[in-house]
Design a protein around this nucleic acid. Structure first.
Lengths: 144, 144
DNA sequence: ATATTACTGAGACAAAGTATCGTCAATCGC
DNA sequence: GCGATTGACGATACTTTGTCTCAGTAATAT
């Protein structure tokens, strides 16, 4: 039922659970983010929340990232791109280099391989990053 | 014997092979880069080549990257780091989050997994990026 | 209702590059 | 070897993606 929750936004709930305040500004920013099913850039969000300071948008994005409800990744040229991360469990992403669309992608194989690699690596693994670049179906179709 | 080559620098040879000019400035920059076995940042190179313009250093790094003799990667916070890429064949890197040391790392397993993944992905894979973050032996030892 | 603390907006600052532009040097053609 | 051509250079301005500071404001605690 979840009737006792202040909001039905996963983003807002996540920060509230960690003791951060839910403010009207954060509501607006979370709304703009949740309207972006294919990922977004920070500046896109800035553009969609007129009246909200740029610093505040970046602070909110950082906060959502900190509580792991949004994920930050990078295009081949290093340009950052964000996406909502509802699933929770660790996973990776495919990013379309044409339109920037981000999709989740969970491959248990990769996790196993990474574990196996640990033995070959000189030092102790503390984390990893992985992005798979694709041309999505839509971009493939429109390229015909 | 390679006696006919203008230089014994892999970096300079690589750009010469692609038709770019070898200049005294590029010699100096290549020298500074090749003195960095554990990777480097662009600004570190700028600091080591006094008298050479910052833009020129960035242009040279970009050029070396273009001809694939240096590799660009990212620390967990996105800070860029470069490393010489002598091997040639595709591989990945481990990066020590303590000191930034970069090591090559070739896992055929990963390549196989990525191939297998292609079937699961919605769209056509065009590339990927992967970094493994570690605490290197030196940093582990000095943390005791 | 008030005090405390966190949040906000504006704007300056920072890091990592890129673009422009006039000057200079490396290579090409002879 | 010498001049013409093209590419490279340095300085500097600008761009992108953030972060920091600071004074003012809103949200929670008592």
């Amino acid at each position: 039922m979840r009737s006792a929750l202040a909001t039905d936004s996963d983003l807002l709930n996540a920060i509230e659970d960690r003791g951060y305040r839910i403010t009207s500004t954060r509501r607006v920013i979370a709304g703009a983010i949740e309207e972006s099913p294919d990922g977004f850039t920070a500046e896109q969000i800035c553009g969609r929340v007129p009246g909200v300071g740029r610093a505040t948008v970046y602070r909110a994005i950082k906060l959502f990232h900190e509580v792991e409800v949004i994920c930050k990744m990078a295009l081949p040229d290093g340009a950052p791109r964000y996406a909502v991360d509802t699933g929770g469990r660790h996973h990776h992403h495919t990013i379309c280099t044409g339109c920037g669309a981000v999709q989740d992608f969970r491959a248990s194989t990769i996790e196993r391989v990474l574990k196996a690699i640990e033995a070959d690596v000189d030092g102790q693994i503390t984390g990893h990053r992985m992005e798979i670049y694709v041309t999505c179906q839509t971009c493939l179709a429109s390229a015909d």
